[in-house]
Design a protein around this nucleic acid. Structure first.
Lengths: 189, 189
DNA sequence: ACCTGAACACCGTTCAAGT
DNA sequence: ACCTGAACACCGTTCAAGT
């Protein structure tokens, strides 16, 4: 006789994301998730193949959120301004969900590789701005430069890599401005 | 009666570094280290407070190696050329010791915070080039921009974040050139 | 003074038994 | 069809007992 479901995959992923942010990836144990959704640990395996699988689902959900946020950045007539908005939205997301961000864009042993589809969607906004700024011929290289810089900056910031003093906010804006100069200068050649 | 030592801290750290590169951080277990140095796991605790401590020692040794490599980059009269050499040395180190690099500059849950001393030493070369390029007033911001970009680029490269095609070598050189432009343009104002 | 086996707590995961 | 307790393998770590 069927038992009524006491949880769902959606519940489980949500619980996992909350635990990830509050207790870190190491704190994201099957026990902790089970406790939170009100079930025993072995029951989770009815909806999820493994902890690894669950972490993958958390990563997917996180990239989707990030993509949504980046897509919401409005496109203006000024690619320089768009670059700034995009870079700030990216950083804001990282600050709002540091552990999730790290999971998909950090570069730990636990960092997830994303589906090409998901990755393309997340890259779309940057590629657009990069093309506007640097011209179509250098769009990909420019997008990589922007992404690498922003990702590296935020990673170091959140990881405590910036402890030589100085204003971090200013350093980020400095980077945006220099990047805009460098990439649009290139388009002028 | 004293037993002759069957291993040493140096041995242990060396073994740990080798295991880190060959089997990843997850494979770096006390068991594995003990097997490699020819002792039982509990004996390791005579020389090392905990696994965490051991990983910290591995991180320290790795930063020291990186610093040495960066210091060895010769300083020329041309700051643009120096930037390129430095960036390439940085990337070469990351390719030679990906797991170690990740441990100190990736941004995983396991990424180690470094001693301020060690960090300053590792940053010295970049700070010098940054000052040469952007002028003393913007040296710190410029150094952060360079570091963030290089670190982000390499992290994405090693983490498989670049799967939209294109030549990665070229993208790195593109970044070096744009960065040199952007930062030295700033010095001219 | 270093080394060891035994033991403990804590993981992820499996599975037979319950409803 | 989902849920559970019991059990297993594998961690890090402690400790009393060996030499």
């Amino acid at each position: 006789m069927p038992t009524p479901d006491r949880t769902s995959l959606e519940d489980i992923v949500r619980a996992a994301r909350e635990i990830l942010e509050s207790h870190g990836l190491a704190g994201l144990t099957m026990q902790a998730v089970a406790d939170r959704v009100g079930v025993r640990a072995p029951s989770l395996y009815k909806r999820v193949r493994s902890r690894n699988d669950l972490v993958g689902l958390v990563a997917r959900a996180t990239v989707r959120d990030l993509s949504d946020r980046l897509d919401a950045v409005v496109r203006s007539a000024d690619p320089r301004a768009d670059l700034g908005e995009l870079a700030r939205a990216f950083r804001a997301f990282a600050h709002a969900r540091p552990a999730g961000f790290r999971l998909i864009l950090g570069w730990g042993p636990e960092t997830r590789k994303l589906d090409p589809d998901e990755q393309l969607r997340a890259s779309a906004s940057v590629l657009r701005v990069a093309a506007d700024l640097a011209g179509p011929a250098h769009a990909l290289e420019a997008a990589r430069m922007i992404t690498a810089w922003a990702n590296g900056f935020i990673s170091m910031e959140l990881g405590g890599g910036f402890n030589l003093g100085g204003d971090i906010e200013e350093a980020y804006e400095f980077g945006i401005a220099r990047l805009a100069d460098a990439l649009s200068a290139d388009a002028r050649r």
